[in-house]
Design a protein around this nucleic acid. Structure first.
Length: 269
DNA sequence: TTCAGCCTGTCG
DNA sequence: CGACAGGCTGAA
């Protein structure tokens, strides 16, 4: 669910409320989830009493920066971070709650594909360096270099978080449609003009999606439990079998990078 | 570079 | 009942 625009929306909301807050108590709900993530209860609990200094996002990862350590969260497909949620009745979807002096943050994840881990500041920079450049920070020159250096399909490149961090299946399909580039094309064969189009469309797409607080197809909700609105602007994602909004050709669905991929066989060259 | 696997839910 | 789902990893 959460790709860059959704995580960025959550980050901006949380930092308004929780920056500088003291973490009073951690309530673990799903021990199996923590165990799977190699986070021991003892280590996790050792954060209690610390001040949350700031937030950091890179790609789809969100980091909560405490004194000397960072709590890293990834929302997987269905994770959500809810601030002061009313109905925290026992649910098998609840993973843990962080009780701050300025509010309560609940991490839920029905499918449990999310991640949580605790890193020292040194390990944090190593970890961040393993991710590609954040899609919002990317420059045209960097994108050009990336594409020209890869023979793989452009869709695979855009989805690869070690190359560019932040794009997922929704935004990749929307981006390739807007840039009129076929998902089957290979990075190396794109012209300078096509790369420029891809770059411009990537930046405007992400900016528009953030302005509308992300896309809610199924599960995504922000920290207040509200849906985003960018799904109303989607042009192709999830619309295979319907006419292309530009040329009326029926949109096709295929599998690329093991992901369902929707595109217009006429507009996207 | 493919593919199952991790989980749970929804839709047809 | 099968197909599919905003992600990602590790093994074949």
């Amino acid at each position: 669910m959460p790709e860059l625009p959704e995580v960025e929306t959550i980050k901006r909301d949380l930092e308004k409320i929780l920056t500088g807050a003291i973490l009073k108590k951690i309530i673990p709900y799903n021990l199996r989830f923590l165990e799977k993530n190699n986070l021991s209860l003892q280590e996790f609990k050792s954060l209690e009493g610390e001040r949350l200094n700031s937030f950091l996002r890179k790609g789809k990862f969100l980091a909560l920066l405490f004194k000397e350590r960072a709590l890293i969260l990834h929302l997987g497909l269905t994770g959500s971070l809810l601030l002061n949620s009313k109905n925290s009745s026992p649910s098998p979807h609840n993973i843990f709650s962080l009780i701050f002096d300025q509010g309560e943050l609940l991490f839920r994840d029905p499918r449990k594909f999310g991640k949580v881990f605790l890193l020292s500041m040194d390990d944090l920079s190593t970890f961040l360096n393993h991710l590609g450049v954040d899609a919002l920070e990317l420059t045209f020159e960097e994108l050009k270099k990336i594409l020209q250096g890869h023979r793989g399909r452009v869709k695979n490149l855009l989805l690869n978080q070690r190359i560019i961090a932040g794009l997922g299946n929704i935004y990749t399909d929307e981006l390739l449609f807007r840039a009129k580039i076929s998902p089957f094309r290979r990075g190396m064969e794109l012209s300078e003009e096509e790369i420029y189009r891809l770059y411009q469309e990537m930046q405007s797409l992400l900016a528009e999606a953030i302005a509308l607080r992300g896309s809610s197809i199924r599960d995504y909700v922000d920290s207040e439990g509200k849906k985003g609105r960018f799904q109303e602007k989607h042009l192709v994602y999830g619309k295979s079998g319907t006419p292309c909004p530009i040329c009326q050709t029926i949109l096709k669905r295929t599998i690329i990078a093991q992901r369902g991929t929707t595109y217009c066989p006429n507009c996207q060259k």
